[in-house]
């Protein structure tokens, strides 16, 4: 069944989009990530213009992170104060990102920049996760107890000034890295159309030493607002949010996420992380190939005067 997307201005198959949403939702439920980093490249592979894929991806991320944050709120695994500080940084980063987005679009380098960011970030995160999870798998197979970093351990980040107490996370840390992290994620959110959970979660755990149980809820909480802000700014400055497209993805996504979460409970942590790492790497490689393979058309047209 075909449907015409009013903003993307192309006809697409409803079932392909629902299935795409459901598959990504399943994975995001399973791994506890928003799934934006999968949706946006998939939409680009499906010939949705990158500018629209990014803005609509941000819109779709709101649904999955809102649904996820709700259940963490009910379980009390959500640090509102930490989320709020991350968010303050996020708004600044997101605003800068939108500006860069519009500039790159005018210069004709937006598609390249989006692809490069994806390849670099997904490649790095996927690679690190794969190494870490394979080591963990090997350690558990040889019978040794997994080595966990103690939450009391300190690094350079803990010596920075302007400290603030985050009670729910049992954390006393400078606001500088928290704001910086929020800003970085906000920037990526507006350029890549991702929530940034795949960077936020490891950063909170390894850099700020936030207890793992509050990390996902807090990350989802701040992602709701960052991606809502991104959606709003893309809608007003670039008019690139396609609600029909976003709704189809969300509808499939929220259904898939609940089943994914259930499936995820049956797998062990290291296995889950190894699978996610391979998935992330596969997306990165696919995007990287497109950068190097000779495109079928060397020339492209775009409307001039997009200021």
């Amino acid at each position: 069944m075909g449907i015409y997307l009013p903003i993307a201005e192309i006809s697409v198959n409803v079932f392909v989009l629902l299935a795409m949403g459901a598959a990504v939702g399943f994975l995001s439920g399973m791994f506890g990530v928003g799934g934006g980093f999968l949706i946006t490249p998939l939409l680009i592979f499906y010939n949705i213009p990158p500018a629209i894929a990014v803005a609509t991806g941000a819109n779709q991320v709101i649904a999955s992170s809102f649904s996820g944050a709700l259940s963490h709120f009910k379980r009390g695994t959500l640090d509102f104060k930490l989320g709020g500080v991350l968010l303050a940084g996020g708004i600044v980063g997101s605003t800068a990102g939108i500006y860069v987005f519009a500039l790159l679009r005018r210069l004709g380098q937006l598609d390249l920049f989006i692809s490069l960011l994806y390849v670099v970030l997904l490649g790095t995160v996927g690679g690190l996760m794969l190494v870490e999870s394979v080591n963990a798998l090997r350690a558990s197979r040889s019978g040794a107890a997994p080595v966990l970093k103690k939450s009391g351990q300190h690094n350079w980040i803990h010596r920075l000034p302007f400290k603030m107490r985050f009670r729910a996370s049992k954390l006393f840390v400078s606001v500088i890295p928290v704001l910086g992290l929020g800003a970085g994620i906000g920037f990526l959110s507006s350029i890549m159309g991702v929530g940034g959970g795949f960077i936020m979660v490891p950063a909170l755990i390894y850099l700020l030493k936030v207890p793992t149980n509050v990390v996902i809820g807090t990350s989802l909480f701040q992602i709701i607002f960052t991606s809502a802000y991104t959606t709003l700014v893309h809608a007003t400055t670039n008019q690139t949010v396609d609600v029909i497209l976003a709704f189809l993805l969300m509808a499939g996504g929220v259904a898939g996420a609940q089943y994914g979460a259930k499936a995820g409970q049956r797998l062990r942590g290291e296995q889950l992380r190894a699978l996610l790492a391979m998935l992330v790497l596969a997306v990165a490689i696919r995007l990287a190939v497109d950068l190097f393979v000779t495109p079928p058309n060397l020339y492209s047209l775009s409307a001039a005067g997009l200021n």
Binding site: N59, Q60, I62, A63, S64, S65, F66, S67, L70, S71, I224, A228, T231, L232, V233, H234, A235, T236, V241, V243, A246, F247, M250, A251, G253, V254, A255, A257, Q258
Partner: peptide
């Protein structure tokens, strides 16, 4: 934009 955000939140809540 506000509508798109509300729709996403509503879908997320209903989906749950």
């Amino acid at each position: 934009g506000v509508f798109a955000i509300s729709l996403a939140m509503l879908t997320g809540w209903l989906g749950r």
